[in-house]
Write a protein that binds this DNA or RNA. Structure first.
Lengths: 116, 116
DNA sequence: GTCCATTTGTCCGTATGTATA
DNA sequence: GTATACATACGGACAAATGGA
């Protein structure tokens, strides 16, 4: 389970690619927990920090999500999409709310104008 | 030039934020080279690895680009913003619409105040 | 061309912190 | 309270790429 010695890329990139392939091939399905950092480090014959460096990339790609004390889990594609749009969704919700408040305010002013 | 001891976030995040602010405030302009990793480490009183961890995030955000043997350079915004332009356009349209409605409402309220 | 200083990139071992179960 | 597991930090070391002498 070690790394390819003929591959001149940094080990952390090889580990990241190996995990991407394992996820893509269904070895780890959405929701599954990956082996622990210590186990992966032993499997690939690298230090724990090297595994962490690989996971940093996978987290940035939103392919996995890590929880302290629990583990690192494979994300579903829909979860990744939701995460990328969650910030924008929240902004749009806020805008909708403000738009509604503006509409109510506008109606109140209209009534004031009609009563005068 | 050290870090805020009251900030309980990890030092690498504080370094990343400090660099983001320096770039946003024009201390480093597009195309400029940042101080070397060793210099930044000394400025902020952290290890070189901690600076590298911060730069890993900034590179993922496409805020900077690093070249071995040369340095780390600030990227122009046009290079990084293309992907999110459509979403921002939609938000700006909504904000413009609300701004117009607010302006009309403000004028109507002013007239009411003048008539009372 | 060769040599060398600079700079980023990476890895490791160890230690500590923090959140979960 | 204990054990597990991820997260971060540090120091040291070496590799790789650049650029200039």
């Amino acid at each position: 389970m070690g790394l390819d010695m003929d591959d001149r890329r940094p080990p952390y990139q090889q580990v990241a690619d190996a995990l991407r392939a394992a996820i893509r091939d269904g070895e780890y399905a959405a929701g599954d927990r990956l082996p622990t950092v210590a186990e992966l480090a032993e499997q690939y014959g690298v230090a724990k920090m090297t595994v962490q460096r690989a996971l940093t990339d996978l987290r940035a790609e939103q392919l996995v999500v890590s929880w302290q004390g629990r583990g690192t889990f494979v994300r579903s594609r829909s979860e990744a999409d939701a995460a990328t749009t969650s910030v924008h969704d929240e902004i749009m919700k806020r805008l909708d709310s403000m738009h509604d408040e503006l509409a109510r305010l506008s109606e109140r002013v209209s009534r004031l104008e009609g009563a005068s």
